[in-house]
Simulated scan of single mutants.
Amino acid sequence: MSEVDSRLVLDALVAEGDELDALVAEHDWTTATPAAGWTIAHQIAHLAAADANVVAAIRTPDAFGTVPKDSDLVAAEGAATPRDVLLEQWRSGRAEVVAALREIRQEQGFPWFGAEVTAQLMAPLRLMETWAHGQDVFDALGVKRNPTARLQHVAFLGVTGRTLSFYAAELPIPQEPFRVELTGPDGEAWAWGPSDAAQRIRGSAEDFCLRVTHRRSRAETGLTAVGDDADTWLDVARVFL
């Protein structure tokens, strides 16, 4: 499965944000979420700040180095903002980040934390983060989430994050090819890697996405691994440092 046009991912990002928006608009933002010390307000504040950072990185790249890097502090400051103000900031920021990513070439680079990224990568990154923090909110409220085909973009980041996973765990980077075979929400088959690879991961796309975003432990998923390196990957899988 190859990379997807970022413009299509942006459509999915809009839908992901709208789904979370509809949920949080109906509930108390002081509700604690699974992230230690973070309420729903903290989750929304974090997403709003991250969107603002993307816009700043694209439109004023020379000033990006001054962006605050302490996510807990930024989330706490945002969470103290009146709810209606924070909600409007998040809504307008979501629209701005999509507009900014649509304005530039997919391959155009801009600064990000510790690296340079492109619109083609940032689009699924924003989708992944919106989905992952949204999962915290769904879990906090005890609301069952219906998985969608948007998970394909999160899964793609999980697959491409294999090297990062081993690096972050301070383990040798496997050189052998891997095969990842996932079942999408509607029963569709999503696969990455050579079909004859000895190292293999299988399971539902939702479980894989929950695992690589650290929203579920490996034991809480139905994912299976064939091969020692694949087995280790499921233990250390991640999509962010």
Results as ranks from 00 to 15, higher is better:
154 V>H: 10
12 A>Q: 13
35 A>K: 12
241 L>I: 12
195 S>Q: 12
164 L>M: 14
25 A>I: 09
20 L>P: 07
76 A>C: 03
42 H>Q: 03
140 A>N: 11
156 F>T: 03
75 A>K: 14
236 V>D: 03
108 Q>K: 11
42 H>G: 00
85 V>D: 15
163 T>R: 15
237 A>V: 01
1 M>H: 08
13 L>H: 10
189 A>R: 15
87 L>Q: 11
66 T>I: 10
183 T>H: 08
85 V>A: 01
37 G>R: 05
207 D>N: 04
214 H>C: 13
86 L>E: 04
158 G>F: 01
232 T>A: 14
118 T>P: 11
188 E>M: 09
29 W>E: 08
161 G>I: 08
87 L>D: 12
25 A>W: 07
226 V>M: 02
205 A>Y: 05
137 V>S: 15
161 G>C: 06
79 A>I: 05
238 R>F: 09
171 L>A: 01
166 F>D: 05
82 P>G: 08
141 L>F: 06
25 A>K: 13
230 A>W: 04
166 F>H: 09
89 Q>I: 14
10 L>M: 10
133 H>G: 01
108 Q>Y: 00
131 W>C: 01
236 V>L: 00
198 A>V: 01
76 A>M: 01
214 H>S: 14
50 A>G: 12
120 Q>F: 12
58 I>S: 01
3 E>I: 01
185 P>C: 05
169 A>C: 00
8 L>Q: 13
131 W>Y: 13
32 A>G: 02
4 V>I: 11
222 G>S: 01
68 P>Y: 06
99 A>L: 13
63 A>E: 15
168 A>W: 10
21 D>C: 04
160 T>W: 15
52 A>R: 14
4 V>F: 10
60 T>M: 06
2 S>A: 13
217 S>K: 14
36 A>S: 12
111 P>H: 09
240 F>V: 13
216 R>Y: 08
